[in-house]
């Protein structure tokens, strides 16, 4: 991912005269077919970009594909799980984004920790996470999974954030987050997977 980005930034910086339109970054990142007369060809001529070729590293291509078919582990913990179900059901319809609920961790790429993680359930969350095949991603949905929420003080049985147990890629705040917020979190995760996200993602 990183290689593609570096080059694209270069193009954008060098086009300062204002005559040639800056090529949109997404042409390259999304693997669009680059027209022959486009300025990028002057830049990347030696890189053998022929008409109709897709300018991509294999890694980029794979990430792009992965980011659009996130199969989600059905793991409802608490109130947020209801909103997660609402996001999966007819009105919000997460299937549009290639997010399909799966019953088994062995078949899923995405763990949405939807709800409060207690000390009693934390080992199970951890186990489910390690049962998922690599590469796997985690969304902490709701304030509870992010930081313990209302139960931060005096909640003797609540883990103060699921990131104490498993690594988290995207946090979605809200108590509960609306389904739109969850969808936004999933889109953000797609950007993380494609390496487009801003911020200090690994």
């Amino acid at each position: 991912m990183a290689h593609g980005q570096g080059r694209v930034r270069q193009i954008a910086d060098s086009d300062t005269d204002g005559n040639a339109p800056t090529p949109p970054r997404r042409w390259i990142d999304h693997g669009a077919i680059v027209p022959l007369n486009h300025p990028e060809h002057r830049e990347f001529g030696p890189l053998l970009v022929a008409p109709g070729a897709v300018l991509h590293s294999a890694q980029q291509m794979i990430s792009w594909a992965r980011s659009h078919s996130l199969w989600q582990m059905m793991f409802g913990l608490a109130c947020c799980a209801i909103e997660m179900m609402a996001a999966n059901a007819s009105h919000y319809d997460l299937d549009r984004f290639g997010v399909m609920p799966r019953g088994s961790p062995r078949q899923s790429d995405l763990l949405i920790v939807s709800g409060t993680v207690t000390y009693k359930v934390a080992p199970m969350v951890e186990r489910v996470y390690y049962q998922m095949p690599e590469p796997r991603w985690v969304i902490a949905m709701g304030d509870c999974a992010t930081a313990g929420s209302l139960y931060y003080h005096d909640g003797y049985s609540v883990v103060k954030g699921v990131d104490q147990v498993i690594p988290v890629d995207v946090y979605v705040s809200g108590c509960p987050p609306r389904p739109e917020a969850l969808i936004d979190g999933i889109l953000e995760l797609e950007r993380v997977i494609r390496g487009e996200a801003e911020g200090d993602h690994p």
Partner: peptide, 12 residues
């Protein structure tokens, strides 16, 4: 009194 500073179970 533990609720102020919770003693973590072993798996942490």
């Amino acid at each position: 009194a533990d609720h102020v500073d919770i003693k973590r179970p072993e798996y942490f």
